[in-house]
Simulated scan of single mutants.
Amino acid sequence: MDALIGAGVPGASTDLIKDTDMQSFGEDVIAASQQRPVIVDFWADWCGPCKQLMPALETAVKAANGAVALVKVNADQNQQLCAQMQVQSLPTVLAFWQGQPVDGFQGAVPASHLKTFVDKLVALAGGEEAGDPVAEAVEHANGLLDSGEAMQAVQVYQQILMHDQNNTAALIGMAEASLKLGQSDQTTRILEAVSEDEIDDPKQKERLARIHTALELAAEGENAGDRAALEAKVSEDPQDHEARYSLALSYQGTGELDKAAEALLGIIMRDREWNDDAARKQLLKLFEAAGASDPFTMKYRRRLSSVLFS
């Protein structure tokens, strides 16, 4: 990305919609985005969703009356550029403002989504009070992550970190996304770059604590034992709480929190005080890892209360 930034030249093209390639990307996107947001559409002839998205995207850009520009990149003819921009599927749309990626999405989306996307870019470029584009990008990535689109969130976090490798919010978001994708080792490596003592935001501290708890749960799951054997033991003897507890650990290790919670509740329903209340304590750890407002937590807190107070 730094190489691309360096390739930019003063002055941006006045063309509203145009094609570009590796050689012209610096001028058409990086330099041009100093004047107004530039939307980059990565597409290919063989891509059906690309053909659905492009005319709708062109319409949305034209409706903004020059406030944003659209640049199209043929992915088949510009594979090196796609690799630099970490484009992994088509269509991919990235938005640049003042030389930096600030938003993006993948796949064909409805016209209402495109209007909101363009309106947000117009507002972003509206003046000094429009806000920090990097912070806007982090917020967008966090929204993708919260909606279950971890891979898309990773791509936005990566773009942010290419410009600011020490951005704490992006690092924490990247760690959480990696964890959701089952990449515990990568999560640990990312966290090594986070200076936890310098974090003042209570929300970021809470988020970081959840990630650490989730890593602990994943590590516990690795040592739970053979899942098929545990399932067989529980099936043969529903009162085998030790096997059911290990089975819960196995589920949590692979991110199957619902199955883990059901197994733990199965113990609590049969013997609330088994092993010094171990099942309830473990269930609370699952709540901590998921977060207080997560639908999983709210659902199983209600289930736990129902069991305990029935």
Rank of each mutant, 00 (worst) to 15 (best):
V68S: 00
T213M: 09
L191Y: 09
E27V: 15
W97G: 02
V68N: 00
S305L: 14
V40P: 09
G255E: 01
L16K: 02
A177V: 04
D76Y: 10
Q183H: 13
V134E: 06
C47A: 11
P133M: 10
L57V: 09
A123K: 06
A170M: 04
A7Q: 12
Q52C: 09
A60V: 14
D19N: 13
G225E: 12
L4Y: 11
N142S: 11
K180R: 12
V29R: 08
R302D: 11
Q34R: 14
Q158W: 03
N142W: 02
K203V: 04
D294R: 00
L70T: 10
D237R: 09
Q79R: 12
D28R: 06
Q34P: 06
P49G: 03
G148H: 07
A123P: 02
G253T: 01
K205Q: 13
D15L: 15
K62W: 00
V156A: 07
A278C: 12
L70I: 13
A219P: 07
H212P: 06
D277Y: 11
D200S: 15
E128Y: 10
R244W: 09
A63V: 05
Q204A: 10
A278R: 04
E288W: 01
Y157M: 08
A95R: 01
G126L: 01
Q204N: 08
A169S: 15
M151E: 13
G291M: 04
Q100S: 15
A175N: 03
Q34F: 09
L265F: 04
A56S: 14
L217D: 03
E198N: 12
D294I: 02
I30Y: 07
D19A: 13
K51A: 14
L283A: 03
L124M: 12
V40H: 08
W97E: 00
L286I: 13
R303N: 07
M298P: 00
V134P: 03
T213Y: 04
